[in-house]
Structures are given as C-alpha cells and as structure tokens.
C-alpha cells in the first residue's frame, strides 16, 4: 500500500466521518483501492453523504452527470485530485 499525502489523509478522515465507518481508520485506507463495493463497500447513499461533506469542507458541489463519476470515486487518490482541482477553500 502506497503512502498517503496529507491531502489524501484529510479527505480519508472526512470520508470515515461522513459515512460513519467506525471500524475503519483513515490511515488504513489504501489510496489506490476502490472506495465503493470492493473496497470500503460504500453505496450510492454513501456517495451522497461524501458529496455533502466535500461541499461543506471544500466549497464546491460534486456532480455525477458525466462519465467521470466512476473515475472520481474509483479511489481515494482520484477523489483527492478531483477535490484539488475544484476546491474553493
């Protein structure tokens, strides 16, 4: 498992809190593993929760209406770079 950047760790903490993953620690998330189904077993409702937390913390609204959605949620790393590209705070 690769090391996490500080930004990825911050985002991992946000996800663990947003979806109430009490048995998962942020530092244990593999930055390259899928967040949904195979990895943390998240579903579309979790995606909704994560999007809300992201918009509150980083000041932009996530969208899923493009084919990018799968790529963005494919891993913590991808989500972190999506956040880095869109954040306003």
């Amino acid at each position: 498992m690769e090391a996490m950047t500080d930004e990825e760790f911050e985002l991992a903490c946000l996800i663990v809190e947003a979806v109430n993953l009490e048995d998962v620690r942020a530092e244990e998330i593999d930055p390259n593993a899928p967040l949904f189904v195979e990895g943390l077993g998240l579903d579309s409702i979790d995606a909704l929760e994560i999007a809300l937390a992201v918009s509150t913390r980083y000041g932009f609204q996530m969208r899923s209406d493009d084919a990018d959605n799968r790529r963005v949620f494919a891993s913590l790393r991808n989500l972190a770079s999506h956040v880095a590209a869109h954040r306003t705070r």
């Binding site: 579309s44 409702i45 995606a47 909704l48 999007a51 609204q61 996530m62 969208r63 899923s64 209406d65």
Partner: peptide, 28 residues
C-alpha cells in the same frame, strides 16, 4: 440520466425545457 448529487438534481431540474417540473425521490 441518473442524477444523484444535489447539484446534479438541481441541474437536471433546471434543464427541464418547459420549466414545469416534478421531483420523484425518497426521504434519504
């Protein structure tokens, strides 16, 4: 499509051509 996030749903509603809209959803 399959709008999921709040902004997607708002955009999808906004794009309605006639401006007459109904949102079909769930409590969650």
């Amino acid at each position: 499509g399959r709008p999921l996030f709040p902004q997607d749903v708002a955009d999808a509603l906004q794009e309605t051509r006639t401006g007459r809209r109904v949102l079909v959803t769930t409590p969650i």
